[in-house]
Design a protein around this nucleic acid. Structure first.
Ligand code: MN
Ligand code: MN
Ligand code: ZN
Ligand code: ZN
Lengths: 129, 129
DNA sequence: ATTGAATCTGAAATTCAATTTCAAAAAGAG
DNA sequence: CTCTTTTTGAAATTGAATTTCAGATTCAAT
């Protein structure tokens, strides 16, 4: 299974930054990886609380930040004011088409668009995200 | 000058919706059109206050909404939590490359990208924004 | 094991843009 | 003018995100 490898990546990141591998961080990590959706912090917090009601929301915020830094999670902006996060590890880059009315979305990639975007970015000194 | 035409558009929109053409709405309209930047509400509010310190921030919010509905303004999302607005009337569609670190941005369009994006949207039943 | 320092946690407070509320002011109808 | 509707803006509220800080936990050195 892939999960062990991601866990290794997380553990590696924490070691590198001399941070501790705590119960809370492990639980949040597990809950996050157990989904394949685009979670808000609140939604992840709910999941975590089902497993351990004592984990604080603040820690969820903080751990998601760590997961992003470790390239395991990726912040995705769906236009609203709530940040959402998806699993990045093991998932190819993709774009989102989001309905501005109802929030419905789909994931899609067009290689030609990506290529042209890369060129456009390079031309202006930006690095595609 | 172009401004008269835009003003006509605004007035027309207000008439259509049976809304009044007030001092405040006129002033906010003028201040907004006097810039060619990507203003936050706060920034526009500052401009308006210089002309008339009695106008309230709430009215700036409300009027920007009207300007968007009238297709004179366009909300642009630069990734932060502050909404920004640019003049839409008389400006061609364009995309923004935004630096996620410093916020610096440039406007650019690539016709081929646009075309492919349109196709991609159509394929999935979305309407490009 | 004991101690002391550093790290981590989570409730609570704070921030800040955005929205809502509501009473007063202004505008329009008759 | 009088009555009704619309508009306004100060103040209150919301809600996600961040900050604060005292207590809990972990780690290292004895
Ligand atoms: Mn892409
Ligand atoms: Mn475009
Ligand atoms: Zn996705
Ligand atoms: Zn622009």
């Amino acid at each position: 299974m892939k999960k062990d490898k991601v866990m290794d990546l997380f553990v590696g990141y924490l070691r590198e930054k001399v941070l501790q591998i705590t119960k809370q961080r492990e639980e949040i990590f597990r809950c996050f990886l157990s989904t394949d959706t685009h979670l808000s912090v609140e939604e992840l917090y709910s999941l975590v609380r089902k497993k351990d009601p004592k984990v604080g929301q603040t820690t969820v915020f903080r751990t998601l930040k760590l997961l992003c830094e470790a390239d395991i999670a990726k912040e995705v902006d769906f236009g609203g004011r709530v940040k959402r996060y998806e699993v990045k590890y093991g998932h190819k880059h993709h774009d989102h088409l989001v309905c501005t009315k109802c929030g419905e979305f789909i994931e899609a990639v067009d290689e030609r668009i990506e290529e042209l975007q890369d060129k456009l970015c390079k031309k202006f000194g930006f690095i595609p995200f």
